[in-house]
């Protein structure tokens, strides 16, 4: 049973069909990659799954561990996050002026309860909750290796660290499926290498599945168990890294681009 099962997902923008009947499945504990040339519709696919867009057609079904399956297409993004899907953004979307710690604390929001009265009167319960969120957020930063930036404003972080902070923030929402949109974009080889380590470690320790979009083929090949390939909104191939690498259709779509790297 897959944690995420997408069937015939279609998304139209006016006359443009950005995603055209794409089906995809992520099994529990799997790392799955979604690749394709620029403008293939990968980010749009993510946006449909996470509720940013309401897909024109198709189903998005999730099965949280220990829970019944449910269809979530058209659900609001914050509800999708509550259900256990968390994402990062291709064009980094951190809360720039907030500190690194606060960015992660925001991720905890949907798992906390205190409201306005709690904020003003700051009773015992609220204080305990605030203490807990500080502790939990700090633990997450430790896991991702960002503790030395705790009180730094997010915008002051080096690019690679910003991408890692996005992952930390997503992790704070307690997801069972993590969707990463080009997590290695703009990273140097060293940073990419430690990102691969991080993703593998997270899967082991947090028992989460990962769906990632990536242009860095060496990362995709070394990390993923299954690869889906999109081109012009359509799904053109699916298989293991070895299969996809040899697929003539994929090679044609990437014509001129080196996917052996």
């Amino acid at each position: 049973m897959g944690v995420l099962e997408v069937k015939d997902l279609t998304m139209d923008f006016g006359g443009l069909r950005a995603v055209d009947h794409v089906s995809l499945e992520v099994n529990d504990g799997e790392i799955v990659a979604l690749i394709g040339p620029n403008g293939a519709g990968k980010t749009t696919f993510f946006n449909c799954v996470t509720g940013v867009y309401n897909p024109t057609e198709g189903q998005v079904q999730i099965t949280a561990p220990g829970k019944a399956s449910e269809e979530i297409q058209g659900t609001q993004p914050h509800k999708v996050t509550e259900k256990g899907l968390a994402r990062t953004f291709q064009n980094i979307r951190l809360f720039q002026n907030m500190t690194v710690l606060e960015n992660v604390m925001i991720g905890r929001h949907s798992r906390l309860k205190s409201g306005i009265a709690g904020a003003v009167f700051r009773g015992k319960k609220t204080r305990a909750e605030e203490q807990q969120v500080l502790f939990d957020s700090y633990e997450i930063l430790k896991k991702i290796g960002l503790t030395r930036w705790v009180n730094e404003q997010a915008k002051n972080l080096p690019y690679g660290e910003q991408r890692r902070l996005e992952i930390a923030r997503a992790l704070a929402t307690e997801p069972f499926l993590l969707l990463l949109d080009e997590p290695a974009a703009g990273m140097n080889p060293q940073e990419t290498h430690s990102l691969v380590d991080l993703i593998l470690r997270l899967r082991e320790m947090e028992k989460i599945s990962v769906l990632l979009i990536e242009h860095d083929m060496s990362l995709v090949m070394s990390l993923s168990e299954k690869i889906y390939v999109m081109d012009y909104g359509k799904q053109i191939a699916v298989g293991t890294p070895a299969e996809v690498k040899k697929d003539p259709i994929v090679i044609k779509a990437y014509l001129g681009e080196d996917i052996d790297a």
């Binding site: 940013v52 951190l94 809360f95 720039q96 925001i106 929001h109 798992r111 929402t173």
Partner: peptide, 19 residues
């Protein structure tokens, strides 16, 4: 904090589980 996050980036805010 949620209000400040909304000021900073509304789309990210929604995706972080804030209504």
């Amino acid at each position: 904090r949620a209000l400040i996050a909304m000021r900073e980036d509304e789309i990210a805010c929604r995706s972080m589980g804030i209504n």
